[in-house]
Design a protein around this nucleic acid. Structure first.
Lengths: 141, 141
DNA sequence: TTCGGTGCAAAGGGTTTGCAACCTG
DNA sequence: CAGGTTGCAAACCCTTTGCACCGAA
């Protein structure tokens, strides 16, 4: 995602565009993996020593509510990644060590036909966990 | 699950069988739904006023490590249910209100063929969320 | 100018840990 | 009897909130 697209996405939300938000969002979109709040703060602190946990949490929450981020739990911590620009519904393979993801071009919901008709489905989750090539080579699996 | 099976399962783990563990496990297996630590504590407090958070957390963790329980996140809280006795791999529909589950006799992994061969798969998660008949009738969806 | 964003400090909530007493196997 | 289990208290960590000031629109 380039800078123009990032700005467009942020502006199309109901959130004000502040320098810190722009930088947080840029960081998240450049990394393209699931990142914890702690990691985001560490990154931001380098450039803005006064950056606080509150702002990071508040912005991650706002971003997620606006649909700019997706969340999952990685190693016990809530982690976030930018919503994929792929315009079709899909899922991910997720590296348990570095959070890196690979697009999985399949949704199991198309195979689920025999659901209880009295159960109202509102959401689903399909994630495959493991270790990416790079982390395996480093022996981190 | 009857009392005999519960005892067998607990004994086959590496955990000692104490009255409180037995009762916690009985409660979880009778309910057959995802239950939060808080709920478990409330239930246990009725019979054992001295029951503490620590013991509930420790036992839930031990049970899960022994494979006696499965965990998911429900409404922001880690919740647990007894591992199904169904002897084949499967997944669940989960009611977002009461945690009740329905067995889903399908695993999407059999449709996943085109995985990156360099990604080492170690686990996966497939859950369908929604509202069960009873909760819908009560307007809790 | 207005309303939302931010930093600070403090509180909150869920979860974990050290320790001494207790109990299962 | 030994080693795991429990209750208590305290600590811990992540996350949220109230408030005053600042800044985007």
């Amino acid at each position: 995602m380039n800078e123009t697209e990032r700005l467009d996405r942020l502006r199309s939300s109901s959130l004000k565009v502040t320098p810190k938000r722009l930088e947080m969002y840029a960081y998240l979109s450049e990394e393209d993996r699931y990142i914890s709040a702690k990691e985001v703060l560490e990154y931001m602190r380098d450039k803005h020593p006064t950056m606080s946990f509150d702002t990071v949490y508040r912005n991650l929450k706002s971003f997620a509510e606006e649909g700019l981020l997706e969340a999952t739990e990685l190693d016990g911590e809530k982690s976030f990644r930018v919503t994929c620009s792929a315009n079709h519904h899909h899922h991910h393979l997720i590296c348990r060590n570095c959070g890196k993801t690979k697009l999985l071009d399949l949704c199991p919901m198309r195979f689920v036909e025999t659901l209880d008709p009295e159960f109202e489905v509102v959401d689903h989750k399909f994630e495959i966990y493991g270790y990416c090539k790079e982390c395996k080579q480093k022996g981190l699996n």
